[in-house]
Nucleic acid binder design. Structure first.
Lengths: 120, 120
DNA sequence: TGCAGTACCCACCTTTTGGTAAGCATGGCT
DNA sequence: AGCCATGCTTACCAAAAGGTGGGTACTGCA
């Protein structure tokens, strides 16, 4: 593996939480999986506007290592893989909701644009 | 200015919140200011184990631009500058508390070390 | 036959982030 | 005179994060 280490020592709880949730797509992956329950790789890809395959794999693998998502691979052809939230992934997503609301207010406050994309 | 742009377009609230709170020291700065109310530059420096002056200045400037902290400079010598949380900084800090608790549990769960440092 | 879709891996490159070390203007202390 | 402290700034580097474009093995469909 090239990068990503850490998992401590941590300065505080936020530090520890940020360690697993920072990464351009991780909170969005949590949200997608929360919304849909189960998602296949390509479905996630279509649900996240602008993500590259490499990044998606990478983030999912790290989240798997951090026990946030569960990955189930089916030995079929064409290949199939299903992703779901673990217990800890679910609770992390819940812990992020207050932050999401704060951010939504901020978007209104500063009048930022929102990304719009075709539904998948 | 060399880097840091963004402030949208955002995909969702979490995206927007992450935009302002990501950065190695920002959440810790929020916490320090929340604890003490007012802090001078050197006090913050001493309160954050391992931060460099450059980084501290940089993060504080970005947080000022994002209206999370207020900076008051007194034209004295030796120079004096005081930092406080703005309304939005305070509410952001509150929105982070659930995340902090999640992280604290994670620290216990995985048995990670915690950084210890001399009190300032 | 040839192209699309599946879920990836790999090598390479650029951008962003963070760290190190120095300097500056001023005054107090010794 | 020399050192410390204040709150910064600047230049230079290293590491991490992210992006691009290719390949794989196989099947289904036109």
């Amino acid at each position: 593996m090239p990068t990503k280490a850490r998992r401590g020592p941590y300065i505080c709880g936020i530090d520890a939480a940020m360690d697993v949730v920072s990464g351009k797509w991780k909170s969005l992956i949590l949200w997608e999986l929360h919304l849909h329950g189960v998602r296949r790789f390509a479905q996630l890809r279509r649900g996240l506007p602008g993500v590259s395959e490499k990044m998606l794999v990478q983030q999912l693998r790290e989240m798997e290592e951090d026990d946030l998502v569960h990955r189930e691979v089916f030995p079929e052809v064409p290949p199939r893989a299903e992703y779901t939230l673990t217990r800890h992934g679910t609770s992390l997503n819940e812990a992020l909701s207050a932050l999401g609301e704060w951010g939504a207010e901020r978007i209104e406050r500063i009048g930022a644009e929102k990304v719009v994309y075709a539904a998948g």
